[in-house]
Structures are given as C-alpha cells and as structure tokens.
Nucleic acid binder design. Structure first.
Length: 852
DNA sequence: AGGGTTTTTT
C-alpha cells in the first residue's frame, strides 16, 4: 500500500525535450550554470543514483530547489512515465518554483512541469504519480507535514527500494536526518540467543525458535514484503517489543551465528535485491549565494528591548551606509509600540531619523499595507520594516542590509493534559537567529544586530532540555505564566548567551501541537500503530493519547481504535479539524448542511474581519449589523449572505470591515466541502424552511435589534438545529458563564490548572467572567463527568460579548491562550443539548459542593 | 461592561 496521495504539492516533471530552442535560451542556460549548485551537479546525480537517500545541506540562494529536479530529469529519472517530485511547505513557493522550472525548461505549466496545491491542480490530466525521486525541501523547518512526510517516506522506502529521496535541510539537522534515514534494514531470524542474520533492507526479525529452514524464512520475508500492515520498527523503539508477539526488533549488530548469516544471504539472493542502493544516506553541502553578514551583540544588558530596538535603528540610520533595515519583534503589539516610538523619535530628533520610512509587517495586515512594504524604497529614503517572523521565511524583502533581531518570537505550545494550545513569547533558536541574520545579506554584505533576552537559570533548564514529554507540557505552563504579553523590563544581552545558552534548533511543531488531525491522517493511511510510528522526533505520548481520546469521544475511532465506518473514514477525508468535520457531517443528518458548510468554511480562515485597530469604535458599530444573538457562528452566516448578495464585492467588504481575501477563501472552502459531501452521497440541505429551527424567530438573519430583543426575553433565539449540529462536534468545549472569581490572577489560574492536570482529570472547562465574586458552583446542574475548572474569558472579538447577551451556557470554537484563556467564536446553548449529544461525556448531577 | 492572533496548511 503505497500512499502517493499524501504527498503534498508535487512538482512533477515528465518526458519531453529539455532544451528550449527559442531565443533567450542561452542566457537562461548561462544563468543556470552560474548558480552555486551547478558545481555539484555530477556529484549529486552520482549520489542519488547510488544512495537511497541523499541529504543536501544548502543555504538559501544555492539554486538547489529549481535546479536539482532539472538535473534529475536530464539524467533520465523522469523516463518511462516516472515522476520527479519536490515538496514545499508553502503554497506560494510551490507556484513560484514550478513556474521558474517551467520557464527554464521552456515548457508550459501543467505539461511536463506541474504543481498541486489546494484548490489548484496544475498537472497533466493523465498524470500518474509514479515517483522515482522525491525531494523534500525545507525539511529543517520541521513542520508537522514535513515530519509526517519524512516518516511515511521512510516507511515506503522499505518496500520500494528503488525510490530515491532527497532531503534538503539546514546544517544542524543533517546528522540526525541522516541517522533517521539510515535504514538498517535487515533480515533476521531470532533464536533463543537473539542471534541476527545479515544486513540490508528487509527489516524483519521473528522471535521463534531460530531454527527456521530456508523455505520457512522465505515465507516470512514474503509476508513482510506483501503485507504492508505489519508493524516494523527501528531499533530502540520500545513499544515494538510488545507488538502482538509477532515481530520483535533488536539492534542491528548483535551478531548472528554463521549459519544464520548464510541463511539471510540466501534469502536476499532469492529476492534478487542486490542492486538496491546503499542505505547509508549521502550528505552533500552546497554553499549559498548570500553575502557575509557581520553580527553585533549588545555588550551590556539593557532594560527595555523596544527602546533598545528604536535606539539601534536610529544609530544605524546615523552611522551606516544606505540600505533598508529589517527588525524582528514578536507580535502586533510590540510592532505597533515600536512603530510609535520610532515615529515619535522622528519628530523629536529630526537629524538622527531623517529619511526613515517606518513600516509594520505581520500577517494580519491588510493587503494594501503589506504592499507598501514591498514597494521599492524611494530615493534618499531608508525603509525600516518592523516585522514578526513572517519575514523570516514566508516573505522575502529585497534591499535589506541591516537586521535587528530581538531574539524572540511567538511560538505555539501545547499541553496535552489540559488540551490547551498557548501562544507564547519564547526565545528563538540559533537556527532561527542565523536565518534572520541571513536576510541582511541578499544584495550585498550586511550587518545583524542581535538582542537576546536574559532568562533565569531555572527556566534555561526547562527551555533548553526539552525532549521529554513532561517537560514540554511544563513549559507551556511556565511560559504562559511568566512570559505573557509584552516583554518589558527584561534584560537584553550578549554573545555569550548566543554561544552558550541558545538552543541549536527549535522544537519541532509536532511536539508543540494538538495532534488530532495528524493522528486521523495516519489512521486513514492504514497506520494503526500510531504510538509506534517512526517519527523524526516523537511527539509526547500524552499528546497522542489525547488525540486518540478526542477521536474516540467523537466516534471517529471505535473501541479497537480503528476508524469507524462510515463516519470515521469520511471525516478522515475532510481537510479540516476533525471536530469541524464532525459538526458538518452531523449537520447533514440534521438537515442544515447548506448553512453549516458556510460556518465551517468561515471558521477555517484566520478571521473574516479586518483588524479594526485605529478605527475600533467605527468597526465595532458596523460589525454589529451582522451580530446574531445566538453567537458568532450564526453571525458568520449573516456576513456570508451579505457578501454573496453584494456580488462578492471588495467594496462591500471594505465598507463593512470584512476581510475580502478571507471571504474569497471562505467561498472556495465551502465549495470544496460541498463537493466532498456530494461525493459521500450526502444531501446539501438548508434549514431555512425548518420551522423547528426558527421556533422563536422567523429568520436567521437577525439584526442587532432582533438579537437584543430575543436576548432580553432570555431566549437564545433560533437556529436550534444548527447549534445542535455544532455541539455534535464541539460538545467538549462547553462552558458555563458565571460571574465569579474576581479578576482571577494568571498565577492562580495556573495553579488550578496544574492541580487538576496533574491528577489526570479530563479536560474540562468551566468559566467565569472577571467581575463580582460569587460561588461559582452553586448553579451547576450539569457537570462533566470529570470536572476541570479553568477560568475562561470571552474574547473581545466575539460579537456575543458586544451585544448584551449573557448566555448561561456556551460552546466555544477555540481557545486563544495568551495571558488568559480567551474563547473565540462562541454560541449560546441549552445545557440539555450537551447531554443529548454526548451522553458518554456528560451526566446530570445535582450541585455537589463537596466536590470542591 | 470590555478587549486580542507567530506562522503555515489539507
């Protein structure tokens, strides 16, 4: 069972002529030859020919991404209907790499060179994915998808020895990457003394009596070759020792007796596998095209990093030759503050700040403002771009000569015990610092000014010795408690920190995230032993167990942890969070899929609103026109309807503080979802006519007034069916809104969280608003079977908190955890719906104060 | 009565 479908964004190149005859060919060809990677052409081809895996260590600008696929093609790897693939972590890169390669080859996109990204398959219609070489680019970024892909490819490689892998990675990781792909595959027959047989490519050790005959062993090997579901692991992965008592794996190198060696060799000969490539990965290093960047550190710790940033920018402007400045800070707050400080400085100190063009950059910025950043710097001006880590990899600015690096970024951490993801300001790794500095050397030699924060010793330990699951979950606690919000009053410092204390690499995303989607994807690929999957870096076992628990509670997996049919299999195919998918499928049952696909699509974009900063009041007022008393999900329906009625007008969006690009994506995602549902044979139905759905209110498009009026009656107004369908996916995110616990301190909330978390209470959430004090348990009628008290706050962006609806019970879509836990996208519910939707999760109980 | 989201992606 090979799984080409999981390989994202394939850049395929098929048969055909390589050379273009049109004018301009020779200059293109000369350009290609000037790229640093050209010198390594023959070496790379030789290594790929002879090694199963080749690791290319290359800095940016070496040309490896566009050139290597072409070299392979020229060497015949695309012949006989075979395909060379290159994967990229970002859509934009896929398109630009593909079009560059097509241009250089003189062909049209979609013919010999194609690409696939979501909503866009630019490959030949007859194209079959028979890969000869797969190049995984930017593997050092260690995104969840890359890590999964690498694990899967390793598995596939065992059964397809002719498949070649190329992994492009940054220096630091090359070694561990090489170890990972060192397929010490072996045939082994295990006797009472654990004697092993032979080397090479088939990894199989049977613990029988060790007296198998050649014929018996042949049968065993055949089974392994044919039965992909057999669990096989690498040495050191303990869980494998317990797999059904069939397959056991022991480290290679425990020597087998001479007879077993002979036996193994005979097996290999039988399968004629001697021409298989060397399993030891090859490593090539390719230099980049970047210019040198001198690094400067602060000598003494300083007290305010924003002020220091501003001072540094002014100093560069005063003393250094022309060239743009790129500043790395952590988030919009910091960036806004720094922009303001700098702007103030331009008024106060005209001399030092003359010619400065100060621009913020972060992903939430409107398209117009982002374009400003990419516009060429006017003559006599110096651009200062103050950015999040979006400028680290995702966007490239030309003309930057100076980089100012705060040494921090916001990073996601996940606590599998409380099931909460937090966004936390944390120190970056050396790899990131190097990447940031490199941004200064694209046009000419540059300079990088580094600031790094001083951490208390105790934290250093936790931060830098991550790896164990316990520590990584602890980190999210500690970070959240201490480094919340703006960093201020902290000390910045020195080279010593960079050299001695900064972590070499970041923590892979896999170890900092909720794994529900990842686990269901693996399940869908037939990988049942999730805990034993061969990861490049294993996620915390708690996170995997938690993911399985969530899938189980949603009836996506059954008692045997197998995907349920049809719902589990269907959900695995929906490209969304399983809780969202469950909600959509339930909507099909309940007859409101038309509306629910809109809601699901709206939830899948970052925000359908444009950030109203600067015009908060005005934008709030406008947004209220869409507000539904039932909650944010229903509000989305109103916005969507408005957008469609306007003819998908960007003007309409502008006037209503709605994000035009987000809405276009909503339309695309909705379309994709509907196609998928139709393929499942599920009907698209609207609940608009459903009388029960609109028991109290005639129409679901509620104006502000209607909503308030209903709320005044204490009635969540309508959309019962929709809300019940939402609950089918999100019942676990219920919350009782209570006025209690005066301004619960962050510290206090973490103590509570920690207390409950450590005693393995299931996640559960009860909430408060931070006003008057009151016994928060008194009114509880429904308790989750395991109760976990956690103060939650309604996000200010939630319209439910703006119109004066105060529902008792709500279900939220997600938590944003910064200094506090904020619920994003909330709907009002009736608690009895929870018991109805998830009797396995909730039970009715009389208030029991003794519990606390 | 009150306030936020680093970044990707199927």
């Amino acid at each position: 069972m090979s799984s080409p479908a999981v390989i994202p964004r394939a850049l395929g190149a098929a048969n055909g002529s390589v050379l273009a005859t049109r004018f301009g060919y020779s200059s293109l060809e000369r350009q290609r030859q000037r790229l640093p990677v050209f010198k390594y052409r023959d070496a790379i081809l030789y290594l790929v020919e002879n090694h199963a895996t080749t690791i290319i260590v290359g800095e940016t600008g070496s040309g490896k991404t566009t050139q290597i696929p072409q070299y392979l093609k020229e060497a015949g790897w695309a012949e006989g209907g075979r395909v060379i693939a290159c994967t990229q972590p970002r859509r934009l890169a896929v398109q630009s790499v593909a079009s560059r390669v097509a241009e250089e080859m003189g062909v049209k996109i979609g013919e010999e060179v194609g690409y696939t990204i979501r909503f866009e398959d630019q490959t030949n219609p007859g194209f079959s994915r028979n890969y000869s070489v797969i190049m995984v680019d930017e593997a050092h970024e260690r995104s969840i998808s890359t890590d999964m892909l690498l694990g899967l490819l390793k598995k596939i490689q065992r059964r397809r020895p002719e498949l070649r892998l190329i992994i492009s990675s940054a220096t630091i990781e090359a070694k561990s990457m090489s170890n990972f792909f060192q397929n010490r595959c072996f045939v082994g027959a295990i006797g009472p003394k654990w004697g092993l047989v032979v080397a090479h490519r088939i990894e199989l050790i049977y613990e029988k009596d060790g007296n198998e005959t050649f014929d018996q062993l042949l049968i065993l090997v055949k089974e392994v070759l044919e039965d992909g579901s057999l669990s096989i692991g690498s040495h050191g992965s303990k869980p494998f020792g317990q797999v059904e008592g069939v397959v056991k794996v022991r480290p290679f190198g425990i020597s087998g007796g001479p007879e077993s060696m002979t036996l193994g060799k005979k097996v290999l000969e039988h399968f004629a596998m001697d021409s298989v490539p060397n399993q030891l990965p090859a490593i090539v290093s390719v230099e980049g095209k970047g210019y040198t960047v001198d690094i400067y550190y602060v000598e003494e710790p300083v007290s305010d990093y924003l002020q220091t940033t501003v001072d540094t920018v002014l100093l560069i402007n005063e003393k250094e030759s022309p060239g743009d400045i790129l500043v790395f800070l952590t988030g919009q707050d910091d960036i806004d503050a720094a922009v303001k400080l700098l702007t103030d400085a331009t008024h106060d100190d005209k001399k030092r700040s003359s010619g400065l063009l100060i621009l913020p950059l972060f992903s939430g910025l409107s398209r117009v403002d982002q374009d400003l950043v990419f516009a060429p710097t006017p003559r006599g001006k110096r651009k200062v771009v103050i950015s999040t880590n979006i400028a680290e990899t995702s966007l490239t600015l030309e003309g930057v000569v100076y980089v100012v690096d705060s040494g921090f970024s916001k990073q996601r951490f996940y606590n599998p015990v409380s099931d909460i993801e937090s966004l936390v300001v944390a120190p970056i790794s050396k790899a990131s610092a190097r990447q940031r500095a490199g941004r200064a050397g694209r046009v000419r030699p540059g300079k990088c000014f580094r600031f790094t924060i001083y951490l208390a010793k105790k934290l250093d330990f936790l931060v830098f010795s991550v790896g164990s699951a316990v520590l990584s979950s602890l980190i999210s606690f500690i970070y959240c408690g201490i480094f919340s919000g703006r960093i201020q009053g902290t000390r910045l410092y020195t080279e010593d920190y960079f050299l001695k204390e900064m972590a070499a690499d970041g923590i892979p995303e896999m170890q900092r995230s909720n794994l529900v989607s990842c686990v269901i994807q693996l399940k869908a690929l037939g990988i049942d032993n999730i805990l034993g999957f061969d990861w490049l870096a294993s996620p915390p076992p708690e996170a995997m167990v938690r993911a399985l628990e969530v899938l189980y509670s949603l009836s996506i997996v059954d008692d045997d942890v197998k995907l349920t049919s049809p719902i589990g299999y269907q959900i695995a195919e929906v490209p969304m969070d399983p809780m969202v998918s469950k909600m959509v499928l339930s909507a099909c049952d309940l007859g409101c899929s038309e509306e629910m696909t809109t809601i699901a699509a709206s939830l899948s974009v970052q925000s359908i609103w444009v950030s109203g900063r600067g015009a908060q009041k005005a934008s709030d007022e406008v947004k209220l026109r869409f507000a539904a008393a039932e909650g944010d999900h229903i509000t989305f329906l109103n916005v969507y309807k408005g957008f469609i009625n306007s003819g998908k007008s960007s003007q309409w969006c502008y006037k209503n503080y709605v994000n035009y690009h987000a809405m276009k994506k909503v339309v695309d995602v909705k379309e994709q979802l509907c196609r998928l549902l139709r393929r499942f044979g599920l009907a698209l139905k609207s609940c608009e006519q459903d009388t029960q759905a609109f028991h109290f209110s005639v129409h679901f498009v509620l104006s502000h007034v209607d909503g308030s009026a209903c709320a005044a009656l204490g009635l969540p107004c309508s959309c019962f069916i929709l809300r019940k369908a939402i609950i089918a996916g999100f019942f676990a995110n219920s919350c009782y809104m209570e006025v209690c616990l005066q301004a619960t301190s962050t510290l206090f909330s973490f103590i509570i969280e920690h207390l409950f978390a450590t005693s393995y209470f299931s996640n559960l959430i009860f909430s408060c608003r931070n006003t008057a004090t009151m016994d928060c348990t008194r009114q509880l009628e429904v308790l989750k079977k395991y109760t976990f008290i956690l103060p939650l706050y309604c996000s200010g962006s939630s319209l439910a908190s703006q119109i004066k609806v105060n529902p008792k019970w709500v279900v939220y879509h997600s938590l944003v955890s910064t200094d506090k836990h904020y619920m994003r996208n909330v709907i009002a519910i009736d608690p009895s719906w929870l018991i109805e939707a998830a009797p396995h999760f909730y039970q009715t109980r009389s208030p029991n104060l003794a519990l606390y």
